[in-house]
Design a binder for these strands. Sequence first.
DNA 1: GCTTAATTATCTATCAGTAGATACACAGGT
DNA 2: ACCTGTGTATCTACTGATAGATAATTAAGC
Lengths: 181, 181
Amino acid sequence: MSKKQQLLKAAEDKVRTGGYNNFSFRELADEIGIKSSSVHYHFPTKADLGAELARQYTDNFLANLGSPEDLVVQGKKPIEVYLQQFQCALTEDQKMCLCGLLGAETDGLPDKVKLQTQRFFEQNIQWLTQAYALDERNTEQQATNRAVAALSLLEGAMLVSKAMNDNSIFITASAGLLEAR
Amino acid sequence: MSKKQQLLKAAEDKVRTGGYNNFSFRELADEIGIKSSSVHYHFPTKADLGAELARQYTDNFLANLGSPEDLVVQGKKPIEVYLQQFQCALTEDQKMCLCGLLGAETDGLPDKVKLQTQRFFEQNIQWLTQAYALDERNTEQQATNRAVAALSLLEGAMLVSKAMNDNSIFITASAGLLEAR
DNA sequence: GCTTAATTATCTATCAGTAGATACACAGGT
DNA sequence: ACCTGTGTATCTACTGATAGATAATTAAGC
């Protein structure tokens, strides 16, 4: 893994733990064994690093999901897969969703970071809307509404689970998603 | 309003905008016209200020709600009132829930702040559980589950609304709460 | 194949600014 | 005299950022 990717990985851990202001170039540099000035070579400013972080996180998140249509072809239920991906982010990493945290503190972020964070939510709502639209009982409007509600519920369930330090809360809170069509 | 309360108010704005690391004693002091050393008089450490902030926020939040039973007596639906209180926090202040943000970054917080943040969620789940238990069709377990889900949905709806900079998302996401019993 | 030139990635050293925190003095009210 | 609240002055540590030097790698020209 390149130093650049190592930097992003280290930064992701810090941000998902305590937000955008919870990492410094020096910390990252120390962690991967270079000097803080070298971090500026890869990312001119902290905002550049933050924006790239959110961008990659979004792309990876969606790439790991696959398209809703493909999942159905594979005999899987898109919403279940989606829920599972959120749950893994919480239980395996023991951390909040990167963009969930950034989204919460959006008004305190540099513009380019804010923009990439917004993109995460746009793309996820789009994905979920497609997923819900596969059920023909849903109108287009209903699909969008359900998408927004599902995303909100999952981000919130993560947040509350973290706050209470109890991952079973995520299960309880998100159970409703599986019952509803 | 005492300087101490002014400090807490200024800190609340900062934290609700960008998290716990988004304010400094100097900023707060400048804003209310005293010196940073004087802030240390009121709050020995930053953690003390943060903990007191979360404590007061929780107490005010619950006090403004009143008890679920009383609301019913007044002919109001507790869940509707509860939702309304969240919505006001978002639309009037144009800011995220204080403890929602702190909860998301809980692992990066001093212990005493973490503890007070946790208390917010405990008390809110308790309140919602009581509210749902007033409908006798709900078992005790169902009431708790619904409480956790409702809290998660509302915190998440706030978060997504902030991230997308669109308060109508909150309405869309939380609409389901009013239909369900 | 060798030399030169450019690019990449790192270093050392340093900057001005800010962080939280402390010691101590001082005023005003009780 | 004491307590409350504030101020001055200062400390150490850390922040993001920059300048300039130095290896290490790659590409181009002959």
